Simulated scan of single mutants.
Amino acid sequence: MQRLTNQVCLITGAANGIGLATAELFLREGAKVLLTDIDAEAGERQAHRLREQGLNALFQQLDVTCPQAWARAMETLRERWGVLDVLVNNAGMALLADVEKLTLEMWRKTLAVNLDGVFLGTQQGIAMMKARGGSIINVASIEGIIGEPLVPAYNASKGGVRIFSRSAAAHCARQGYAIRINNLCPGYVATPMIRDGLTGLPSEQAQAFQDYLGQRIPMGRLAQPEEIARAMLFLASEDSSYMTGSDLVLDGGYLAQ
């Protein structure tokens, strides 16, 4: 049995990485998916590829920091499918700079995408879902639980996502909306964000970081996006029906030691 049959889903940051893997899995589980991303060319290409496989995929460009863009995305859902059942706030970014080198511009840009975007999406999602319920999955990170010297803005943004989601989840439950809001907290995943971040480092520093991860992660490897997508499916489906305001950590054992 497909676990998301006829469920209407919106996924941000869906042109690649975790977002794209999640969109593909949801579609194969019977969902109708609006893929969104700031990268219109890549997003359209992926949605076209998925439609050619007979899957119910649609793409719309979305700048998650823009309230008007969110309103347009929700209007698209109303016109196309009428409802929203699952929202995945996945879009994110990371800029490498320690606290001494981080600029205010870098700080604000990171929080705008990673935290403001989640706030705007969650608020719009609640408005669409409160009459019939649904699931909102906010992608945080183990970096919202621990601190890493090279990503203080990312740490702050993901920590904010975790606490914000708890507040919103408690509100929805108390209001009787039947909306579940949970955090998915991946560790290090083999995605373009990780690859691009390493590319921006001097070669010796990039290699040292990769060696460090190989030793630091008990399972000895980065996660694959598809592994994270399967956890998304759990949070999106009725399998997690009694779970809200919680963190689901997938980190290969990183936080276990």
Score class of each variant (00 low, 15 high):
residue 6 N to F: 00
residue 10 L to N: 02
residue 17 G to R: 10
residue 22 T to Q: 05
residue 22 T to I: 04
residue 26 F to W: 03
residue 27 L to W: 10
residue 27 L to N: 10
residue 31 A to P: 10
residue 34 L to P: 04
residue 34 L to V: 07
residue 37 D to I: 06
residue 38 I to G: 04
residue 42 A to M: 14
residue 45 R to D: 14
residue 45 R to T: 13
residue 51 R to Q: 15
residue 53 Q to S: 11
residue 54 G to P: 07
residue 54 G to T: 04
residue 54 G to H: 01
residue 59 F to N: 11
residue 60 Q to M: 14
residue 62 L to R: 05
residue 64 V to L: 01
residue 69 A to H: 12
residue 73 A to H: 04
residue 75 E to L: 14
residue 77 L to G: 11
residue 78 R to C: 02
residue 81 W to K: 04
residue 83 V to N: 04
residue 88 V to S: 04
residue 88 V to P: 00
residue 90 N to D: 10
residue 91 A to R: 09
residue 96 L to G: 01
residue 97 A to I: 00
residue 98 D to S: 08
residue 98 D to L: 09
residue 102 L to D: 00
residue 104 L to E: 15
residue 108 R to F: 08
residue 110 T to Q: 12
residue 111 L to Y: 09
residue 113 V to C: 08
residue 117 G to R: 02
residue 117 G to D: 02
residue 120 L to N: 01
residue 120 L to C: 02
residue 122 T to Y: 00
residue 122 T to C: 01
residue 123 Q to E: 13
residue 125 G to S: 04
residue 128 M to L: 13
residue 130 K to Y: 12
residue 131 A to K: 15
residue 135 S to Q: 13
residue 139 V to A: 06
residue 143 E to I: 00
residue 147 G to K: 06
residue 147 G to P: 00
residue 152 P to Q: 11
residue 155 N to I: 08
residue 161 V to H: 01
residue 164 F to Y: 15
residue 166 R to S: 03
residue 166 R to Y: 02
residue 167 S to V: 15
residue 172 C to D: 04
residue 173 A to C: 12
residue 176 G to R: 11
residue 182 N to L: 03
residue 183 N to H: 05
residue 184 L to D: 04
residue 185 C to Q: 08
residue 190 A to R: 15
residue 192 P to Q: 12
residue 202 P to N: 06
residue 204 E to Y: 05
residue 209 F to Y: 14
residue 210 Q to H: 02
residue 210 Q to G: 01
residue 211 D to L: 10
residue 212 Y to W: 15
residue 212 Y to L: 13
residue 217 I to R: 05
residue 220 G to W: 03
residue 229 A to N: 06
residue 233 L to C: 08
residue 236 A to R: 02
residue 241 S to K: 11
residue 242 Y to R: 03
residue 246 S to M: 13
residue 247 D to H: 11
